[in-house]
Design a protein around this nucleic acid. Sequence first.
DNA 1: GGAAACTCCGACTAAAACAGTCCTATTTCA
DNA 2: TGAAATAGGACTGTTTTAGTCGGAGTTTCC
Lengths: 134, 134
Amino acid sequence: MVRLSKKVEYGLIAIRHIATRARGELVTAKEVADAYGIPYEMLAKVLQRLTKAGLVLSVQGVHGGYMLARRPAEIPVSEIISAIEGGNPGIVQCLSDSPEICGVASTCTIKSPLTKVQANIERAFSAMMLSEIV
Amino acid sequence: MVRLSKKVEYGLIAIRHIATRARGELVTAKEVADAYGIPYEMLAKVLQRLTKAGLVLSVQGVHGGYMLARRPAEIPVSEIISAIEGGNPGIVQCLSDSPEICGVASTCTIKSPLTKVQANIERAFSAMMLSEIV
DNA sequence: GGAAACTCCGACTAAAACAGTCCTATTTCA
DNA sequence: TGAAATAGGACTGTTTTAGTCGGAGTTTCC
């Protein structure tokens, strides 16, 4: 029906793992990759995106690693997902950010009803905080 | 965030179009394709799947076409989607029908929390009936 | 009975997205 | 300086998606 990408899956596992640690403690990408059998380079890139989005903080150098930027109760799952996936493509092309290149645009009849469904889905992800999955 | 395929989009447009007609009146795939600028052969295949799933009835022959098998208020959008997309692949591979080939399966920590989110999404689609989008 | 109009069906191709890999900086610390 | 870590670009193979093609089966009309 709907499907999250592997990257999102990995990202959720990783950020949850980080969340289980004491606040301020650093966790390396390698540790997470080893713990769950996730390809290291893939995971590294996912964590970089989470860093860019301001969800986790990174420390470079030999004793570096990642830590949460906020408390788990303040991080909605929806934000994790959109940080990894990039934009916010709608449930249907029509509903995405990008201007209408829908093809059926002018005659599209299902756009407005689907807006409601989309809002429901987003609410489902927004309502769930990281703290709920640790 | 989540995205429906073009086929689903076309299917929704088509079945909605059919639903606007008088009960029992036949609508051809060509009519729908022309009306919305949808590739004919693609739409035909989508309608075939809807037929197989028992959502619409098809009549062959020169004055054939499609009509709804039930009243719009009795057709949930979720059923339309899964009729077109086939199985019901979960929000994450772990949650799909197929037995675990997840890779991280044994150590996967996010599976159970996501089950709730998935249930919410399915509810969002199940709650909306075809009659609500005509 | 034959042609036309339509549905039905499966195989095929092209393009895009996804998952994963590789390689190289850059930063930090011992 | 070298090891360990993040940062990030480029690349490849696989899968999914969108769309096409060709043909077969049905019904209706003449």
